[in-house]
Design a protein around this nucleic acid. Sequence first.
DNA 1: AGACAATATGCCACTGAGTGGCATTAGCTA
DNA 2: TAGCTAATGCCACTCAGTGGCATATTGTCT
Lengths: 212, 212
Amino acid sequence: MDRALPLRERKKLRTRRALADAALRLFSEKGFDAVTLDELVDAVEVSKRTFFRNYASKEQVALAAQADLLDAFVADVARRKLHGPLLPALRDSMTAATRRMDDDWVERFLRTRQLVVTTPALIDYSIVESMHVQRRLVRELEPKLGIDRHEDVRLRLVGEFAISAWRCGAKNWLADQREGERRGGGRAALIASVEEAFDAIPEALAMSASAP
Amino acid sequence: MDRALPLRERKKLRTRRALADAALRLFSEKGFDAVTLDELVDAVEVSKRTFFRNYASKEQVALAAQADLLDAFVADVARRKLHGPLLPALRDSMTAATRRMDDDWVERFLRTRQLVVTTPALIDYSIVESMHVQRRLVRELEPKLGIDRHEDVRLRLVGEFAISAWRCGAKNWLADQREGERRGGGRAALIASVEEAFDAIPEALAMSASAP
DNA sequence: AGACAATATGCCACTGAGTGGCATTAGCTA
DNA sequence: TAGCTAATGCCACTCAGTGGCATATTGTCT
């Protein structure tokens, strides 16, 4: 916990984190739908009101780990000077952000994805959240590329592609490790999966029915 | 109304349609959040239970027109024999489906999109629904391409791209017509917007930071 | 036509997510 | 220590969505 922060902030972060941890644990144990919010806030000894000041919904707290990565990704893009092809640059930002996460984040993220894949409500919310990230991404890229037309189709598409590739990569990471593939469930495997998905984009575009 | 159907089915379709119409009207008039489900089912003179046998949520009934198109799109893909490049084929299915919709569908869809763009909950749900379509799309394509690996990255990406392009196209269609562009708000303009988005995909991929 | 089976509907009570208001507490500042 | 500010807790409330069961409506079979 960051000792530089004032006490009040640290405390707030602690409850935030405690909520996310308890949520992941409880949801994984009993199933997302079987756990009520009252149960969750009771476990953390916090009022429901406080919960909603930290997270907008039951779904959001379950995906805290995922949000941590995506925030780091957007932050990296915002920080980085862009030059050359855009999509590879976004891929690099994503892998860099992934590399920079804490070690225990990988564990948290793995459990998060395991939870998501078995919970329809979370599958949907995960997509919604990634789309919000896409919008933030485009908003960061616009000034960097000198594009003021908020409607530029190409830029929005690039954003969608990057997010799509990440989703596919993350999905495959989990699938791979479930069927005991060569790759383990670690950080390196995640990065490899995501890079693989990014790199498959040109092939995907060129896909043809006659020659599968 | 299809006279070939048995009476009971026709009646069911009538209430379904009445619900969607009333929803679009009420939501547009008073705002999505300001209309309760009780209000809606009261206007159609149907019980809340009946509503939920027809639509899974308040959001879903608002997007009935959009779902009609996407269903037709998937049906067209399922029907069509594929040969040659995949993405253009999907684009053709989408435009063909759009062309085949009733005339009053265009009106309904326009009002739907106007509603969506001003309602955060519907923006999100619209994305969720389009993602469900992406999954159905991939499931239709797999056997046609002789791909049994459910995890083929490329195929999933193609599905995502097609849906992304459609979303961008539909979004631009509305934006264009709001600022009184050359293109009107009609069916032809919608098709043009969507085709434009599909055709922008290669450029989007090739986008570069140095040469915007 | 009349009875029966199947299915759609209505009604009602209930759960649980999410919100607003207001009093209280805890951390910061002088 | 006193006082200010922001976070928290508590309570009552709305409303989406569900389950169960009785009722009505339609298709079918004799």
